[in-house]
Design a protein around this nucleic acid. Sequence first.
DNA 1: AAAGCCACTCGCACAGTGTTCGAGCCCACT
DNA 2: AGTGGGCTCGAACACTGTGCGAGTGGCTTT
Lengths: 251, 251
Amino acid sequence: MPPRSDSFTGSVWLRPPRAQTGQPTLSREQIVRAAMELLDAEGPAGLSMRRLGTKLGSGATSLYWHVANKDELLELAVDEVLGEIYVPEPGDTGWRIGASISANGMRSALLRHPWAIGLLGLHPTIGPNAMRLGERLVALFIAAGFRGMALSHATAVLNSHAIGAATSESAIKSALKRTGQTYEQIAEDVEPYLQRLASDNPNYEKWRQETGPMPNDPDQVLEETYAFGLERLLDGLELWLENNTGKPSGP
Amino acid sequence: MPPRSDSFTGSVWLRPPRAQTGQPTLSREQIVRAAMELLDAEGPAGLSMRRLGTKLGSGATSLYWHVANKDELLELAVDEVLGEIYVPEPGDTGWRIGASISANGMRSALLRHPWAIGLLGLHPTIGPNAMRLGERLVALFIAAGFRGMALSHATAVLNSHAIGAATSESAIKSALKRTGQTYEQIAEDVEPYLQRLASDNPNYEKWRQETGPMPNDPDQVLEETYAFGLERLLDGLELWLENNTGKPSGP
DNA sequence: AAAGCCACTCGCACAGTGTTCGAGCCCACT
DNA sequence: AGTGGGCTCGAACACTGTGCGAGTGGCTTT
């Protein structure tokens, strides 16, 4: 595999595929799939080229024929994650529901593969699955009435919300998973630290009173938080549509 | 430094500080600051314990007296990034402006230190700076009229937007920086790939027509995208306030 | 049928990583 | 004067990503 050039031309997505004869024992798809399994099972630390090689029953360096380097492998894996997201066609539902389904899909795909979250900021997501996702969303928002730059912005903010929410959620879930503790146990551990901080931060007590005691099902709360934000965001987009286009927001 | 236990009690933030005598040549603050400089200058790959040691004129393993491990060092660095964010007091401005300033601050802090973005999903941000940030935002939103769970959700969605937007922005900026190309050059490189994809994705052409030609100042466009989303989000929150509290949104 | 090309695999080696361990230093307190 | 402990550090271990060059097998061309 030729070394990735410094110019963008060397990107996985632009590089022409390799010629092929016979039936190679390894394939790029197979490698990416196996890498995802390792990542899902053991997190980013669980993926090394050597382990991936042995998992595939081949030498570690054989992988480099099919993939330029580990970075590129991860880029491919991220696009595969995005491939799991379903976005409805404009005719199927109204834009609000379509957008919700899309954002929900992105959030849950990222939570299913939390290792992908930390990779999103590294390379622009321009793989085929990312593009398909983008184009579907654009179709949805065109049908809603968005035009010009607002179209681009609207799709971007929807994805941003899903990514940001998934990031925050993943942080908490990873702590729960890592320590193996329940939410209550952690709350108990953190309590004295919070007490100490509360003296510096007067509003903190008020906040705790407002939100009440820590719930024992964090998953549900996290989902509520995400859903609340999504509804507010969609409300804001709808409002913009009403004020900036002749028609109301549509069916 | 005692090894980080698996329970949450072992977290940097909960562990009692070390006793101290004499004047040690190294300090935790110094180490974190130096680490941030390396990260800012050369990205995540630029930070190794050995390099950090030599930068501080000390042995690499000396660092382990002040910091449990590299992971914890990064956790400290992330909180330091959050410490750069200014959030106004409720009395200073209306809640909308205050929230905007806060979100802008988070976005720019993350863009100043892009390495922090990928770390946000790893551990919950409960460092002192993160807490101060949260409490300030809570104060702002209490003044706005948010109560109960909605208070918590509103602060969360604001941060999520900033994080998500910074993630997407950072992805693009890192590509520009890495290749050293201009936006136009990259667009030219990617063009044939896009043409190929366009045949599968019919709406893609429509999208390009809508958004027009690629602008030569991506920074401005990215900022616009972020700002558009923020305004929509704040609109949505304001709408919620109007429908769920007696008072209007306030001054 | 022979020859050669080329897709593909892989062992070795290199430079570098995070982290542990134990030895040591030197200051503060008894 | 002596001892404890905060603090530093060198050596070592297991492991990482990856370049290089040799090797192998099947297809294509002569």
